[in-house]
Simulated assay, not measured.
Amino acid sequence: MKTERVTTEKEIDALVREQLAELLKGGFAPNVILLREFDYNKAGVMLDGLHFSAWVLLGHIRARHQTLLNFMKDPANNDNVWPDAHWPENHQPQSEQEWNDAIDAYERELDEMIALVQNPITDLFEVQANGKTRSWAAMTTLHHTGYHIGQLKTVGRQLGVW
């Protein structure tokens, strides 16, 4: 198998953007697909020993995601990138529509972040006043989301979703 070496700054930039976008989607296990597969009727179940349901996880993921997306869109006015964690107080959605609307909103926000990452005009590596970069925000988003999507997947398996 022949490998290809990326050599120019433009090629490296394009490769980084492509890989970040792929990982933000969830890589081999796309986040939106997993959320859409999760049975709404089980979204509010809290297993013994856990302080969250799938609904709480989705709310927590979205809150952190919105903070990081706002930083990426306007870093000068959104420099508090790691405020206290938001954990929704209600553990279940009020309706299937609310569940689906939250997933739709997550997908729109994710698409917006991916568009920023993929846009060659977006400076991913400019260090902001808080010492962070847009690439840091994208990588933090994918790490944070991946962690909690793993929890959601585990909860789903325990509840018989998958």
Rank of each mutant, 00 (worst) to 15 (best):
L20M: 03
L20R: 02
L20E: 03
A21L: 08
A21P: 07
A21M: 10
E22I: 04
L23K: 03
L23D: 14
L24M: 05
F28A: 11
A29Q: 14
A29K: 11
P30M: 13
P30C: 07
P30K: 08
P30G: 11
N31F: 01
N31D: 05
V32N: 03
V32P: 03
I33N: 15
L34V: 07
L35P: 08
L35M: 14
R36H: 01
R36G: 12
E37F: 12
F38T: 06
G44W: 05
G44V: 09
G44R: 01
G44H: 00
M46D: 02
L47V: 09
L47H: 03
D48G: 10
G49Y: 09
G49Q: 09
G49N: 12
L50W: 00
L50C: 09
H51R: 11
F52S: 11
F52T: 15
S53I: 01
A54F: 00
W55F: 09
V56Y: 09
L57C: 08
L58E: 04
H60G: 00
A63V: 00
A63T: 01
Q66V: 12
Q66P: 06
Q66R: 10
T67E: 14
T67K: 13
L69R: 12
F71K: 10
M72E: 07
M72H: 07
D74L: 10
P75N: 10
A76M: 11
A76Q: 12
N77D: 06
N80G: 09
W82R: 11
W82D: 15
W82S: 15
P83N: 10
P83E: 04
D84G: 13
A85D: 09
A85S: 14
H86Y: 12
P88N: 07
N90R: 14
N90S: 15
Q92H: 10
Q94P: 04
S95H: 01
E96F: 00
Q97T: 04
D101N: 07
A102C: 06
I103G: 12
I103L: 13
A105D: 13
A105E: 14
E109C: 06
L110G: 11
